[in-house]
Each structure stands twice: as C-alpha cells, then as structure tokens.
C-alpha cells in the first residue's frame, strides 16, 4: 500500500506502524461519572467496519507523524490522509465549543 503523507507525499505503507481506529484520539474525561464505562468503550469496543475506516498510522521510519488515514477495509483504497494532530486539535476545539 501507499500512503500519501500530507507533508512528505506518497510513501510505502511499510514505513508506517499501524495502531487502529482513529477514535483512539477521543480519549474520555477521567473525571466523568461514567469514566470506567467510557474508558472501557473507548479502549475495547470497535465499529470494525467493512468499508470506510478512519485509522491511525505512525510514520515510524519517517518523520514520526501520526496520521489519520481514511481507508476502505474491503478494497484497501485510501480516501484521505490527515495529520492526526490536526484532527485531534479540531476534535478538542469541537469539544470545548459544546
């Protein structure tokens, strides 16, 4: 596979280390009332879709960016690649706006 790194251009997926579902960015609040349940769901439960999947890849043999790759798990087609930090910042901004 080839991942089109937003900063570095197309790179072989072999340069990256895979983590999993990008919802791992949305770590729950440790002080919330249902923190135990929320952390359980966050860490252990997965949508695991057959189709589009937003997922985290680490450019370990490269610039050490974490990326959010949107990829089809049936065809392996990659639809978009974002810097995870940008995604995380946007998610944080959304949370604080709520």
């Amino acid at each position: 596979m080839i991942i089109n790194h937003p900063l570095l251009g197309p790179r072989d997926a072999q340069e990256f280390t895979y983590l999993g579902d990008a919802t791992l960015i949305n770590r729950p609040d440790w002080q919330s009332d249902n923190a135990a349940q929320a952390f359980h769901d966050y860490l252990y439960l997965r949508d695991n879709p057959a189709g589009e999947h937003r997922e985290l890849w680490f450019h370990e043999q490269g610039d050490r960016s974490w990326l959010v790759v949107t990829r089809n798990t049936v065809t392996h087609e990659i639809l978009s690649v974002e810097m995870a930090r940008d995604v995380a910042k946007a998610a944080a901004a959304e949370r604080s706006a709520q």
Binding site: T17, Y18, A50, R71, V74
Partner: peptide, 13 residues
C-alpha cells in the same frame, strides 16, 4: 498484515 481488512488478501511486505 497489521491493518484492519476484510479483503482476504494481503500485501508483499
């Protein structure tokens, strides 16, 4: 292959 997949096929690495 390490990534989520339903494709029943893998890659060269």
């Amino acid at each position: 292959d390490m990534y989520n997949s339903y494709a029943q096929r893998g890659n060269l690495p």
